[in-house]
């Protein structure tokens, strides 16, 4: 759901940066508490994720660097620092340390009931906030300057959206991990965009796609012993994207291609008909027969188009002569009027 907002803000990579930025937070939280309490680790992730986001913001507004540069910089800085801490932790004689690396690639199997509850509650809050500030979010996403002139506190709305994106990412870390999280955020949204031109439907579809990927992914990995859940979920989400790119009726590649071909064929047909009309017009009897050879002067004429015209009863053929029908003449004269 929140992925839709990230995609529409052209900040798709933000998700990637945030998830990587969350890693040192997890490590530091572990170092301080020495325990593997999920909630505390995630709190650490949340804090460092937010920190990373605000640094990215700071870099883009205060310097000349473009946002992709800032994202890349922060992503590698935080991730590198996080890896450093993880290796440090692994060398420590603390038996407790094992298993922190699950946040790298995620391990849905380690989720316990309380984790699921936490996710459900946060999702509920997310949903509530999105519904509450729907109008403000839409306005900000479409035209932030205009939102300012209407008197809305755009910084507040912006921070709110960003906060929830970070929150969603941090919660997803346990399931799909740092490396794949951004795909989980963006794939459903990218897929949803293909099917609709309404923001509401897009957000809803993204949620459905995301949920389906989660359910299917878990089901598949549960039935096969050696498949870890996170990557399977991401692959399924990506399949959704692929299908959407190909088969969506209005934006999909397949239908677009079909439409182009059809338009071309129709145009060819009309051109030929118009050419015939030009000849037939010069005779008193519109159905005066002409030799097919004349048509060879016309570029774009093929036997196939002639056949099509006969099928449509615009033209009839006797031996190697063609004649326009009444119907064909009418259609052709209307074509002429258009041009």
């Amino acid at each position: 759901m929140l992925g839709s907002f990230a995609v529409l803000r052209k900040q798709s990579l933000l998700g990637d940066a945030i998830s990587h930025a969350a890693l040192p937070g997890i490590a530091i939280a572990f170092l301080i508490t020495g325990a593997k309490d999920t909630n505390i680790l995630l709190l650490g992730a949340l804090i460092s994720g937010l920190l990373g986001t605000f640094w990215i913001r700071g870099i883009t507004t205060k310097t000349h660097l473009k946002s992709d540069t800032a994202l890349g910089l922060i992503l590698s800085l935080f991730f590198g620092f996080g890896m450093l801490l993880l290796t440090f932790i692994q060398k420590q004689p603390n038996a407790n340390q094992a298993g922190l690396d699950k946040y790298l690639f995620g391990q849905a199997a380690t989720l316990v009931e309380s984790d699921v509850w936490l996710m459900a509650i946060v999702t509920g809050i997310c949903l509530f906030v999105i519904l509450l500030f729907w109008k403000e979010f839409k306005l900000l996403l479409f035209d932030i300057n205009y939102a300012k002139t209407l008197g809305f506190n755009t910084k507040f709305i912006d921070t709110l959206i960003t906060f929830f994106i970070v929150l969603a990412i941090v919660l997803g870390l346990q399931t799909v991990g740092v490396v794949l999280m951004s795909a989980m955020l963006l794939a459903p949204a990218a897929a949803a965009r293909q099917w609709t031109n309404s923001l509401a439907v897009m957000v809803f579809l993204a949620a459905v796609f995301g949920a389906f990927s989660g359910i299917f992914g878990t089901a598949i990995s549960a039935s096969q012993n050696n498949l870890s859940t996170g990557p399977v979920i991401v692959i399924i989400a990506t399949i959704f994207v692929l299908i959407s790119f190909l088969f969506s009726p209005s934006r999909g590649l397949l239908f677009k291609q079909i439409r182009i071909l059809k338009n071309r064929r129709d145009l060819k047909l009309n051109k030929t008909l118009a050419f015939m009309y030009g000849i037939a017009k010069t005779h008193e009897n519109i159905s005066h027969p002409h030799t097919i050879k004349i048509l060879n002067n016309f570029h774009g004429f093929t036997k196939k188009t002639l056949q099509k015209l006969v099928e449509k009863k615009y033209v009839y053929i006797v031996k190697n002569m063609w004649s326009l029908t009444e119907k064909g003449f009418k259609v052709a004269s209307n074509l002429y009027n258009q041009h």
Partner: peptide, 12 residues
């Protein structure tokens, strides 16, 4: 969206 300003926060 032109009406959002007079509507204020949250109201649809």
């Amino acid at each position: 969206m032109g009406t959002y300003g007079s509507l204020g926060w949250i109201k649809r």
